[in-house]
Design a binder for these strands. Structure first.
Lengths: 192, 192
DNA sequence: CGGTATCAACTAACTGACCAGTTGACATGG
DNA sequence: CCATGTCAACTGGTCAGTTAGTTGATACCG
């Protein structure tokens, strides 16, 4: 049993810190996150954070990279059925709402740093290639370039995650099924 | 000449503070913005900020409200030509990039406060009405509700303002004209 | 096997910088 | 001379990052 739950388990502590930090950064962003809250939430201690991750920024990088790894392959692309692909992406955003928030904080607070996450670049490149091949086979229209088409699909998938409260106020509540349908149908319309 | 440039002009000072704060909040968000930087940039000082706006949050509210007033009527909706409307919205985002950033910070950092900006709600309501009327006249498809359609158009208008750096890296540079065309054509496709 | 040396994991308390917000004195125009 | 606009200096609290020390598991030795 010693392997299952050692009283002092570095890997488990690291994991708890990462999970707590994910919630904190998703909620408050980099500038708004509090290192003390993360340590408390993880039932650990600030010094551990600096031991494992070096700095607050280093912790965010680790959180973001971790999230990317979990996300990148979670929803494999299906170039032959982009509407359904968008629907599944939408589902994944509903299921894991912090993903979109982290990505948005990243874009706002890390813009211009020039640093990119290689795993995301690589996976995006692969998806563009897949779309380009489908275009060559006549499965997809060529009115948009492969990169443009992929970008539009990804953007539309996040339609319901990126609205200001004022819009929700006016639009009123929509059922989960209807929201998904809007995403699927709008992508389908793009491909006409 | 006393009216043109009085040595002590409360209104002008207020304006400088508002403009400086707009840049600061757009760049760093609410938590990241520094009141001292705003005061320095406005060639004023902190006490003025607290005199005119009460608090940092009050200053953000004033900035956001000010931006909304300037934006809401800047691009009037044309329900008979939504693609071109989206194109003009896109143009306005290119011209005034801080608008999208402020809106995003607002969404992330003020979510759940329940407070909404009345002027935005009202203008959105009017736009939904305009779209609904155009649908009744058969000018627009009814596959999406008026609110959904408006939401999709607004969302697509911001396509090029909301991408993570990794996407730009993969997609490579696109000309300003092409970017606009993608927005216009994607909205046109929605209406087919 | 019992004692102990060693090291990684862990912790509480501290520090120094920074920052939102305040104060009270001074300037200037009417 | 007073209303109002302006400002430098101050304050109290907060927060990222550090330090010095404790705990517990394991390896090593007599």
């Amino acid at each position: 049993m010693s392997k299952d739950a050692p009283a002092r388990d570095a890997e488990a502590t690291r994991r708890r810190l990462l999970d707590a930090a994910t919630g904190e950064f998703a909620a408050y962003g980099i500038a708004g996150a509090r290192v003390d809250r993360i340590a408390a939430e993880a039932r650990s201690n600030k010094a551990q954070i600096y031991h494992y991750f070096g700095s607050k920024d280093g912790l965010f990088d680790a959180v973001f990279d971790d999230m990317c790894r979990q996300t990148v392959d979670a929803v494999p692309i299906d170039p032959a059925d982009l509407p359904e692909y968008a629907g599944r992406l939408h589902d994944s955003y509903v299921e894991r709402p912090w993903v979109q928030r982290l990505a948005t904080w990243y874009r706002l607070e890390r813009a211009g740093s020039g640093a990119v996450v290689p795993i995301v670049v690589e996976s995006t490149r692969a998806k563009v290639r897949a779309v380009a091949e489908a275009q060559e086979q006549g499965l997809l229209p060529t009115r948009f370039s492969a990169a443009e088409l992929l970008g539009l699909v990804l953007h539309l998938s996040g339609f319901w995650s990126g609205n200001v409260p004022e819009y929700d106020e006016v639009a009123g509540p929509a059922s989960a099924a209807r929201r998904r349908q809007v995403v699927v149908e709008s992508v389908a319309a793009l491909l006409s």
